[in-house]
């Protein structure tokens, strides 16, 4: 599969000279929170800089992927106003869910709730629409409290803007395949050093998803297909074998 040259280089830890706005000390002192390999190439600091605001649009998986690196590294994340969040997908994308707090319904006055979270949580993702004046106050709060504010949806002048241009999956084959490999084409832009637009194709899936073990029942292929519950096991077992072969 094709991937932009920038992304593959950044995976090797190589960044263009123009992007060296953060130093290794920033990473070492925790001023920049880590993100998964390919995402680092999209962010001007090679990670999420504390105090910054990042807006994410077009894909919930992209939002979750952004939380993965930091939570796995011991940071806390909160997601506000997203009752339909697929937590299992979050876990599959590498989010350490034991350090994930959900505030699905922040109430009619979400300002104090989000402000309280910014006081102590490293990454706060906000998915509820807010008046621009409140949004700007929260941006300032995040900067002051050294938290990362991730806006899921539109936000007034974020430091970095990540937009999922498309989300695609491996093609299903009428019953013989299943969804495994997800590709998200992401465009990044923003202010200052983040200003220059970059495009990266993120790939999730393949090896990092652990295949569920499937209980293969005894081989009963000589029995009629409508023999009962075993039918389900049999199909599942067959799928498991198909799955184990690389596509």
């Amino acid at each position: 599969m094709s991937r932009s040259a920038t992304a593959s280089l950044s995976e090797l830890g190589v960044n263009p000279a123009s992007e060296l706005t953060s130093t290794t000390t920033d990473h070492a002192t925790g001023r920049v929170l880590p993100v998964r390999g390919e995402l680092a190439g999209l962010l001007p600091w090679g990670g999420l800089r504390r105090g910054s605001t990042v807006s994410v649009g077009g894909s919930t998986s992209l939002l979750l992927a952004l939380l993965a690196g930091a939570t796995a590294d011991g940071c806390w994340a909160a997601v506000v106003g997203l009752p339909q969040l697929g937590v299992l997908a979050a876990a599959e994308l590498g989010v350490a869910v034991q350090r994930l707090a959900l505030v699905p319904r922040p109430g009619s006055d979400p300002g104090p709730v989000i402000a309280a979270l910014l006081d102590g949580i490293d990454l706060v993702a906000v998915a509820c629409p807010l008046p621009p004046s409140l949004a700007r106050r929260l941006t300032a709060r995040a900067r002051q409290r050294k938290a990362v504010l991730i806006a899921f949806g539109a936000w007034p002048s974020p430091d970095v803007e990540l937009t999922a241009e498309s989300v695609s999956w491996n093609a299903l084959d009428d019953g013989a395949e299943t969804l495994r490999r997800q590709q998200i084409a992401v465009r990044s832009g923003g202010r200052g050093s983040a200003g220059r637009a970059k495009n990266v194709l993120l790939t999730f899936g393949e090896e990092e998803i652990e295949l569920p073990l499937v209980a293969g029942g005894p081989d009963r292929s000589d029995e009629p297909a409508d023999a009962g519950p075993d039918r389900a096991d049999e199909l599942a077992a067959r799928r498991a074998t198909t799955r184990e072969q690389p596509a």
Partner: peptide, 11 residues
């Protein structure tokens, strides 16, 4: 058995 390989990000 019947558990899916991937979960949807939005329920």
């Amino acid at each position: 058995p019947g558990r899916l390989t991937r979960a949807p990000a939005t329920l």
